[in-house]
């Protein structure tokens, strides 16, 4: 679109939207230093709540769990999802259309439905709910997002550089590691970042697949609100 300066009303409106987006978070940050417990009035500056937080072993455990789940699910989903993106973008194979549409399911069904379906499934096969079921579920919803992002990156991939690499004597594996992967790396990284963020932020799926004792930070925060 053109670079003509946006109209004044549009600039004012947009500024107000940014205020709307940022105000709640700024207020939250400011009041986290408030001495008053109920957060209604500003009474004085304190680090007390942070001290309380860092000395709360439950919060620390939940933080560890959250990071562990996010890290493992991101790693697995990124590897598997990138493979899927390569397969869908470059190959035609039996069952192509089916896999492609199945891949979209977690993106287009409400989270609550996916949550209860996983809960029912784990209950049916008598799989003990806990960190493992949370991680398995996070991988399941992360694979499609990674695959979609990497696929978008592969879209403009110039295959001739791979052919050049093969012509110069590299085998398929070397070509993949030295040419293909570095080229699609930005896509893989943004897919991984998206997966990590989704996992860290997830409340709904975690809520249904967490067993007793397995708490993540979002669950912990919810119980404190």
């Amino acid at each position: 679109m053109s670079e003509k300066k946006p109209a004044l009303w549009l600039r004012i409106f947009s500024f107000l939207v940014y205020v709307y987006i940022y105000l709640p978070i700024l207020i939250l940050i400011v009041f986290s230093f408030n001495t008053q417990k109920l957060n209604i009035r500003w009474e004085g500056f304190t680090f007390k709540w942070y001290e309380v937080l860092f000395n709360d072993s439950n919060v620390m455990l939940a933080t560890r769990n959250t990071l562990l789940i996010a890290f493992i699910s991101t790693l697995v989903a990124t590897v598997i999802g990138t493979m899927a993106a390569l397969a869908l973008q470059r190959y035609r194979f039996p069952g192509y259309a089916l896999t492609e549409s199945v891949l979209y399911i977690p993106v287009i069904i409400p989270e609550v439905v996916m949550g209860i379906s996983l809960l029912a499934f784990f209950a049916l096969i008598k799989f003990q709910l806990g960190l493992v079921t949370i991680t398995l579920s996070h991988i399941a919803f992360n694979i499609p997002f990674v695959a979609l992002v990497v696929r978008a990156r592969l879209h403009g991939f110039d295959k001739s550089i791979e052919e050049a690499s093969m012509d110069l004597g590299a085998n398929e594996l070397t070509t993949f590691w030295r040419v293909t992967l570095p080229t699609i790396m930005p896509g893989v990284l943004s897919g991984a970042m998206l997966a990590f963020t989704l996992s860290l932020d997830d409340y709904v799926i975690t809520y249904f697949t967490a067993g007793p004792g397995a708490t993540t930070l979002p669950l912990r925060v919810f119980s404190m609100v």
Binding site: I80, G81, M83, A84, L86, A87, R90, R92, L103
Partner: peptide, 11 residues
Amino acid sequence: AFQGIALISPT
């Protein structure tokens, strides 16, 4: 086709 299947099968 076999390569494609090998890549998609984990997913």
